[in-house]
Amino acid sequence: MPKKKEQGNHLAIEGEFTIYTVGELKEQILGALLANDEFEMDLSAVEEFDAAGLQLLIMTKKGASALNRKFRLTGCSAAVLSLLDLSGLASFFGDSLTYAKSKEAIA
C-alpha cells in the first residue's frame, strides 16, 4: 500500500504508484482536484511506477486543465522520470515539471 501525506491540495505518493494502488488514488486525486484551485503531487518517493500510474497521472493533468485548475508535480523519482521519458510524455507534463524543477532549485 502506498503511503501518502495528504494536505488538502498536496499529495505525496510513496512506494507503489501502480495498478495495485490507482483505484484508491484516483478517488483522492479527483476529490482534491474538485476541491482546490491548485493541486500538487510529489512523486519523489515513488519506487514503482507503471502504465496504470502514468495513465492516472495523465488523467490528473487533463482533468486539471478541464476543470481549469493549476497542477504541479513537485518532485519525481527515478522510476517516474524513466517512464515519462520512455513514454515520450515528458513534454506533456512539461510545464508542471519545469515548475517542480524550478521550485526545487529555489528550495
Binding site: G23, L30, A52, Q55, I58, M59, K62, A66, G88, F92
Partner: peptide, 23 residues
C-alpha cells in the same frame, strides 16, 4: 526511434476507471 503515447482515449476524470487501460 520515437515513441508517442496515445492518451486521447482516456476519459474525463469522473468517468475514468483507473484499472482500465486506455493507452
Amino acid at each position: 526511434v520515437q515513441l508517442v503515447t496515445i492518451i486521447d482515449a482516456i476519459p474525463s476524470a469522473e468517468e475514468m476507471d483507473p484499472e482500465s487501460c486506455y493507452l
